[in-house]
Design a protein around this nucleic acid. Structure first.
Lengths: 148, 148
DNA sequence: CATGTTGTTGACGTTAACGTAAGCACTGGG
DNA sequence: CCCAGTGCTTACGTTAACGTCAACAACATG
């Protein structure tokens, strides 16, 4: 898999059929992670790239999923939790109403979870802001003292 | 350390001198974590309770720090990162202007970090919201189909 | 054809963040 | 005085999330 085929797409775009593939190192560099990590996510079932000649070939959709994985991590989610989130991103165009409603509930739950994290972050920011203001008051006092 | 002395504070409040101490199990229950975890945070230098009769005695300040630790964790920070944040919460009432300015910079950096996480969370929420709207459109279509 | 690059699998090592278990010390109650 | 309850320490086990290394396959290139 040396040639990470750019599929030069010659202006005349045949609809979404040639699927724009990426190589593993390509993704690794783009996202600044190791090959090993990407393979690891695959082992965990978070990614499932096609194989071409034994090598992994990632689609745009895989790329998006990888992005989500990394954002999830940056936000402090475990790979297990991220897997849940990713499962909400399927095709589920087919599915009975009940199942779709269930999915909507799951999404709501996930969003509430994220919201809690956001609240915690804002609380920490607020506290840090407090500390900062306190420090600045001390600083201002020091400056006034020096002036006098 | 069976008696987690409530220091009944008899209305006549002598200034901040008796310091309202907490026992380890008390804190563990209040925050819903294990004793082992609290001791672990101590090993990592995140907490430094006084000792009374061989037992750990936590002040209000320790309690606040523990709260910060747990919020930090909920936000996806490592204990090492949390340690940095906590170091910003010291007494540093004494310190030269240079050092105070440095602290302010550190705080700003920490707040920027937190802000990035917040952005990531909001992005994930937005994407989930998209998925949700899509699902709801599909659901609505199904309902219309059933109606007809 | 020899070589180098890129990729794959498998096994093992590592770090963080605890959990679990064993054994000793203190303390209050019957 | 004995025992249950609580706590402390030390040591080892565990899980998640990778990193590292070795050995090998496919492929392009000189």
């Amino acid at each position: 898999m040396h040639n990470a085929r750019k599929t030069s797409r010659p202006s005349l775009a045949s609809p979404p059929i040639d699927d724009e593939l990426y190589g593993i190192t390509e993704l690794a560099q783009e996202f600044g992670i190791s090959l090993r990590a990407i393979r690891f996510y695959e082992d965990k079932g978070l990614l499932a790239p096609r194989r071409i000649n034994g090598g992994r070939a990632y689609t745009r959709r895989d790329r998006v999923r990888l992005g989500l994985i990394l954002r999830g991590k940056a936000v402090g989610m475990s790979l297990a939790e991220i897997e849940h989130i990713l499962s909400l991103y399927g095709d589920h165009g087919e599915g009975h109403a009940k199942q779709l409603e269930y999915l909507v509930d799951r999404i709501d739950a996930a969003m509430r979870e994220l919201d809690m994290r956001r609240c915690n972050i804002e609380a920490m920011c607020a506290e840090l802001g407090e500390v900062k203001r306190q420090l600045q008051r001390t600083l201002a006092a020091k400056r006034r003292a020096r002036k006098a």
